[in-house]
Amino acid sequence: MKALANKLLKENKSASGLRSAWESQVIANNIKQLTAKINQLNKEQHPQKVEEYIEQRLSSLTPAQGQNGFEYLARLSVLNFKEEGLQYELARFSVNYSQINDLYWINDGMVGDHLEIALGKRSPETLEVHCEEKLEFVTEKVWPFILTHPVYASAAPMLEEITKNFAQNSYLTTNILMPILIENIIRSLGAWVWLQQNPAIGWDAAKSHIAKFQSLERLITVADWKEDIPLDFYTAALESKYIPDEKLTWAAQILEDWDAAKIKVREISGQLLATLEDKDTSDETKKQKALALTEEVQKLIAPFDGLDKAPVMVSLKVKLQFLIRRFKDDRNSLLHGHFADLDKKWKCYVNFSALTSIYKLIIELESLYRKNKVS
């Protein structure tokens, strides 16, 4: 694993041709994440840790006494899955995965598929196999929703045209129209969210405010969105690896501090056990030492009590981050007349995935603000 991490680190340090600020930011983040992972692996590859790992692997190669074949295979599968998962975690920081194709937000396919794409063993174009299922979702869920929704109905004719073009294998036309459709929907969503966050201004004022932001990127990044969207704590910590945001970084730091605290707790637990087993120490002394060590443990864990239970509140900027990276650059290529990469089915998949994600976000936000009004 360390060899892979070092290889990816070298690859990122040698990355060239970075045209956008987000690309430089991604590469810098990759270097930071991989360096931290290498440091962690160095600690975990202490001789004792390596010996424990080898014993674990050897024991997994032979069914334990009384263990049936299914239990053995399940155990071995879990170990292999963990190793593949770590490979995938590292590979997501490859230049190919994170910067060239920016696939952090794509969730179709198996871990192995994404791992091979990240390591350059498979083209991202293979993701096009999921295109029809995305289109089916758009047809069955997104289309009826947009068609009947007063905020988004203006986008319905274009979506209908897009689905017709895709059905005719006109991928270029599909991919030319999709960014226009998506910006239309995002601007409508932005006006609606702005109204929810500032209910006194009225719908027309909300639309006028959104119109001030001429580019989609500025709308997402510059508008003063409130941090009122809850994210699960662990989701926030995970997303901090790919999205620059103070709240996400805070969650990740809490987890890092908690891991450090757990190491100290284990050390103290060892001291506590040694104290209790010390035959040369009086019971009263043992009791006093045990109480002191227990108090030390409580002080270590107290700051973290309940932190992972409360949601991390983020803004619309975090939820729409995927639209201002490679997706935005593809749109800019279109505006500059560069169509070659857009006449591909897999780009239709990316666009349908974006539309699907936006639809799910709209549903989530409507539910959220509805609950907020009731409460």
Rank of each mutant, 00 (worst) to 15 (best):
E133D: 07
I146G: 01
K373D: 06
L18S: 14
E84Y: 09
N6A: 08
I210K: 04
Q321N: 14
K247S: 14
T174M: 12
S357C: 07
Q25N: 06
E55S: 06
I182G: 02
D257E: 09
T35C: 10
G85Y: 00
K226L: 10
D329M: 06
E71C: 05
K345G: 11
S375V: 03
A260L: 01
L323Q: 09
I117R: 04
D341F: 10
Q25R: 09
T275A: 07
L159T: 07
L216T: 07
E52C: 02
K371A: 08
N101W: 14
E364W: 03
P311A: 03
A64N: 15
S98V: 01
K373R: 13
K344N: 12
I358T: 02
Y152I: 06
T139V: 11
K360F: 10
L355G: 06
K289E: 08
V314T: 00
V318P: 08
K344P: 08
V350W: 13
K347T: 05
M1P: 07
N68S: 10
A252F: 10
M313A: 05
Q271V: 12
T148W: 04
S98C: 03
I268N: 03
L293F: 14
E125N: 13
E364A: 15
L355N: 03
G112F: 07
C131D: 08
I182Q: 00
Q65H: 12
F145D: 03
F145T: 11
L79K: 04
R218T: 13
N175G: 00
A251C: 02
L103R: 06
T139A: 14
N184H: 12
E246Q: 11
L276I: 09
W203M: 09
E44L: 04
S24L: 07
